[in-house]
């Protein structure tokens, strides 16, 4: 691993100032489960690594604010997967957090880090899209809230501006009852990168939100407001037509060695149908 300058700010403002000063030459270090691999293999060669774990404002926390559930940037997957409020109101997010890597990875990896890496295969992204999460970012110009669907650009690229740091992920109040589930495809049952990762949420008004990743350059959100998908009595052909529309943005890379495009596209449909059934069941039980 090449060497670098290591900064360990304790105040958010210091981190913002460092990030603004160094721009792309700086990398934020939260859990490190992606960054340290990249530092070692040389695909990231920052001059400055800014460790954000000692910043008071970013300490691990899951708190309720104005009806929202706010997950602090330092919060790790283990704590998200175990949190009663997340499990109750955003179960798909808890399920997604519970399958990110192994226990050791989940003990370090943060939700904010997972989001900021903007990996198309990020398992938490579909759940955040279905739940219409917002990314809270603080930068030189102050604080702004970015709807998660407007955050991802492509692998490794987000709409964060220079000097901006994600401080939290906000989940809006679960004002309408929703049944939601996260499903994925992997090459083995033990931990693995997903070849398809998908979340489906059906709410009490009949709206179905499906988000999926690992089938294109960024995770995709698609919504069916017609109520057809959520209606167990709707004809199969009608549902299939809607699924085709919802999955139209999937464009898996033929270069990937994890799965071929045709398999991913087929599995997207299998997972979509399975997730829809589970989501409807969960809504009924809610």
């Amino acid at each position: 691993m090449h060497t670098f300058a290591y900064a360990r700010p304790t105040l958010l403002a210091e981190a913002v100032a460092l990030l603004e000063a160094h721009g792309p030459d700086a990398r934020l270090l939260a859990g490190g489960t992606d960054l340290i691999i990249r530092l070692r293999d040389g695909s990231a060669r920052p001059g400055v690594v800014i460790d954000i774990k000692r910043i008071a404002e970013l300490r691990p926390s899951i708190r309720e604010e104005a009806g929202c559930l706010v997950i602090g940037a330092g919060t790790v997957m283990t704590d998200i997967a175990a949190d009663e409020r997340v499990r109750r109101s955003y179960p798909a997010l808890a399920e997604a957090a519970a399958v990110v890597g192994s226990v050791q990875i989940r003990n370090r990896a943060t939700l904010a880090g997972n989001v900021c890496n903007a990996s198309p295969a990020a398992d938490t992204a579909p759940a955040l899209l279905v739940h219409a999460a917002r990314v809270v970012a603080v930068g030189p110009a102050g604080t702004r809230r970015i709807p998660i669907d407007g955050f991802f650009v492509r692998s490794g690229v987000t709409t964060l501006a220079r000097g901006e740091i994600v401080t939290a992920i906000e989940l809006p109040p679960p004002d309408r009852a929703m049944g939601a589930v996260h499903l994925r495809r992997t090459r083995r049952r033990g931990h693995d990168l997903a070849s398809v990762t998908l979340c489906c949420g059906v709410d009490a008004t009949g709206v179905t939100r499906i988000a999926y990743g690992s089938v294109g350059p960024r995770p995709v959100l698609a919504v069916d407001e017609s109520g057809v998908l959520a209606d167990p009595t709707a004809p199969g052909a009608a549902k299939e037509a809607i699924f085709e529309r919802l999955f139209a943005d999937a464009s898996p890379s033929p270069r990937s060695m994890r799965a071929s495009p045709d398999y991913r596209l087929a599995m997207l449909r299998v997972l979509g149908a399975r997730a829809l059934r589970i989501a409807i069941d969960r809504l009924a039980q809610a």
Binding site: R187, R188, R189, G190, H191, D192, L193, M257, R258
Partner: peptide, 11 residues
Amino acid sequence: AIDYRIPTSMD
């Protein structure tokens, strides 16, 4: 180890 998969305790 990332893309060469061997059985884990869950397999």
